[in-house]
Design a protein around this nucleic acid. Structure first.
Lengths: 223, 223
DNA sequence: AGTATAATATGAGATATCTCATGTTCTGGG
DNA sequence: CCCAGAACATGAGATATCTCATATTATACT
């Protein structure tokens, strides 16, 4: 993790202002943090001292269960907040956050700004929207995971993450995200290949029948 | 559904003020609604015109999937908001809300108050907390549902809903909530009885071994 | 280049959970 | 009091998914 200092910080702040997110000046004590791919931005169970706003990069939210299973709860992208749960709630089990690409974010220290943040309607309005989307997404994922087999959820995931017709996600990540075993994921992928929905190309899978996958994914959506 | 009028309304407003939730006067156009047990407060797919604040009663949030399965996404209790998603988001698939007891709530018309609400830090701060808890709960339920079999989740649910040592929930409701088939729920309940964790008393189940259930439920919690 | 570690792969048997079919027992309204 | 619909109950077979054991590649680091 690198904390930008001096000229580097000044330049970054100048080129990527977040003044529009707040109705009070937040520049004074703000920090700019850069994390490497695979670096842990927040350790599970350790309360952070900052509210983060992601400027560039991607990250993942993980939680570990007592039985050793790991769930990838969600992905984090540019313009998302991190640490908002801890800002709002005194008691909260902090999830682990891992950068999946180089990630640069603004870090707003709680001890300096908590009162202002919690009284700033502009900030709160945006945070409320962010949280409402988050809650809705989780509710959707939850109910879908119980109502549909992997076949449907995987089809949806493939369509969402495919890059120019190629699906290239790491199996292990997908297992944690969709909450199934490695073995079963491979099994369903093999089925997709047998049915010719996908075709294996080295380590990737090329989509051969969009409409079949769309059909499988389509049943997840409510009308 | 009954809309309180005249003296009844005046009295209710007087005895159950929600002025502390806002920093502007909201009384002028507020309504008081009373719903019967099992009545639909909001039809799935139909955007409501009000932000509701539940004063008394309980309700359930349902969503119907294309394959006909129904998910009971969550329970709503006193002091919860309903319709906040629609207040915040122009595009949102509205879930169905059904009262499970007589429910009385304040109904704040969007068209009168949306701008004030979205600029009121006091209101937004509380709503943000509400949403953060909601999002956290959903994330927990989601990851637990994938990481643990029904045995554990049911033990937790029984402990949470038991009333003086007796578990009395309706099977159908529980199926929708825990996302399993009726058949399987009965199967696991029978197992609990065979192991003597529970004992069937007519239509209810008496808890005989708290510690066993606690142990099963305990593994859901992260340390 | 050589080795440790991560990621990919595959088989086989065990479970958790579902579907469908069918029967019984409550419960509220006429 | 009777009946329809809701809620409860149970059996049997199918399927989705898991666990474990074991190979075979990549990848990164010395």
């Amino acid at each position: 993790m690198e904390v930008y200092k001096g000229e580097k910080k000044r330049l970054y702040l100048q080129n990527h202002s977040i003044a529009h997110l707040f109705s009070f000046p937040v520049e004074a004590f703000i920090e700019v943090h850069e994390y490497q791919r695979d670096e842990w931005m927040i350790q599970e169970g350790m309360r952070p001292d900052f509210l983060f706003y992601v400027m560039e990069g991607k990250a993942k939210i993980y939680v570990t269960h007592q039985n050793g299973k790991v769930s990838l709860i969600n992905f984090i992208n540019a313009n998302d907040y991190i640490g908002e749960m801890e800002l709002l709630n005194d008691v909260y089990y902090t999830k682990g956050i891992q950068a999946s690409t180089k990630t640069i974010c603004f870090a707003i220290p709680f001890h300096r700004y908590r009162p202002q943040l919690l009284n700033d309607a502009k900030f709160l309005r945006e945070l409320t929207k962010f949280l409402s989307v988050k809650a809705t997404q989780m509710a959707a994922k939850y109910s879908q995971s119980l109502a549909f087999p992997l076949e449907n959820r995987l089809a949806d995931f493939i369509l969402q993450t495919a890059d120019k017709g190629f699906y290239k996600e790491k199996h292990v990540t997908v297992c944690d995200y969709l909450g199934v075993s490695y073995r079963h994921l491979l099994h369903v992928l093999t089925q997709f290949c047998e049915k010719n929905y996908l075709q294996k190309e080295g380590r990737n899978y090329q989509i051969k029948q969009y409409h079949s996958l769309c059909e499988l994914a389509g049943v997840l959506k409510n009308t």
